[in-house]
């Protein structure tokens, strides 16, 4: 019984925290971009515009909700729901802090569910999340930009989730676990996996941007080519759900990056229990979230075929070879493995 209650409490807390994170992430994005571009950014509402996201949220709720006349209504409604649900679902298996051993000897996990197959779960729902985009593209009543955007999203997700999964296979092989906390624990005794697997680290980093659909791989929503792609026909709150889900995915992918390759809550020094672990963990995650914004402000966008070339012709062979190498190294038992 207590498991259910605790699960529910965690569920609600994570839901609220992530919503809060997304709100202030938009503020952070705008502020950082503004600093990069000689601008001030939001400034008027609250301290340095801190309440700007709330104002935006209220505006988005009150906006007129337009639906194209020819849209498939059910699918049109369903699409953003799928996107947001899957994004949240992924975040439920991510630990938000190191586990704590309570006085009674029970380990308290700071994730909604501490799954043994957490990584499989993540991939299952990442795959599902692209359905939200595909549905949005198809159900927009024959509108062509959403259609092109959905096409791009479909191709991009298929090609880059393979790369993403194959890159993560290396740490999984090394730690022989699919559970995040076990993998982090494995890195406590070792060096971090990024040092064993620099290639997988880099391929994951690249694939991360593609799966999140962020610059330089924001093909599905390239606003200067296909006018925001799949969510052109959406408006109001429904349209707001797509960037919302994207921010959640950014958080989740950054967290996975840190958990799998950068030792989770292990720091290079000051290994002092829960507080130190918590701070280390979030410093690293925040860096990757910042990296997304940084790249956004710096780089142009790749072309669609170039994206496919990078995925299939460069990253995929490299990751496959890397898995062979990891297997070989583990089998013969190289000293550092």
């Amino acid at each position: 019984m207590s498991i259910v209650i605790w699960g529910l409490i965690k569920f609600i807390v994570v839901l609220l925290l992530i919503s809060l994170y997304v709100l202030f992430m938009t503020w952070f994005d705008r502020k950082v971009l503004a600093r990069m571009q000689n601008r001030v950014g939001p400034k008027l509402i609250g301290f340095h515009g801190l309440w700007q996201p709330l104002a935006d949220g209220v505006k988005s709720i009150w906006k007129e909700d337009v639906m194209p006349g020819k849209a498939y209504k059910f699918m049109f409604w369903l699409a953003p729901v799928i996107t947001i649900t899957t994004a949240f679902a992924i975040s439920f298996v991510i630990p938000f802090a190191p586990p704590v051993k309570t006085a009674s000897g029970v380990v308290f996990h700071f994730s909604v569910v501490n799954l043994n197959v957490a990584i499989l779960f993540v991939f299952a729902f990442l795959g599902l999340s692209s359905y939200g985009v595909l549905y949005a593209g198809i159900s927009s009543g024959g509108s062509k930009y959403p259609f092109l955007g959905a096409q791009r999203e479909g191709a991009q997700m298929i090609s880059y989730e393979i790369v993403l999964a194959l890159s993560l296979l290396n740490p999984i092989l090394m730690s022989q676990s699919l559970n995040f906390e076990t993998i982090v624990a494995a890195q406590t005794h070792h060096l971090w996996y990024a040092f064993y697997q620099p290639v997988a680290f880099v391929t994951y980093l690249i694939a991360m941007f593609a799966v999140a659909g962020k610059v330089p791989f924001d093909m599905p929503e390239a606003e200067s080519e296909i006018c925001c792609g799949y969510f052109v026909e959406y408006s109001g709150l429904k349209m707001g759900l797509y960037p919302f889900a994207q921010y959640v995915v950014v958080l989740v992918l950054s967290a996975i990056m840190v958990l799998m390759f950068l030792g989770g809550w292990n720091g290079p020094f000051w290994d002092g229990g829960f507080v130190a672990g918590f701070i280390w963990y979030w410093i690293k995650v925040a860096f990757f979230i910042f990296l997304f914004t940084w790249i956004w402000g710096t780089l142009p966008r790749y072309r669609y075929d170039q994206l496919m070339d990078i995925g299939w012709k460069i990253l995929l062979p490299i990751t496959v070879l890397n898995i062979f190498w990891t297997g070989f190294a583990l089998t013969i038992g190289l000293p550092f493995f």
Partner: peptide
């Protein structure tokens, strides 16, 4: 082409 910053 997708580079936002040069604009400003």
């Amino acid at each position: 082409i997708g580079a936002m910053t040069p604009y400003f």
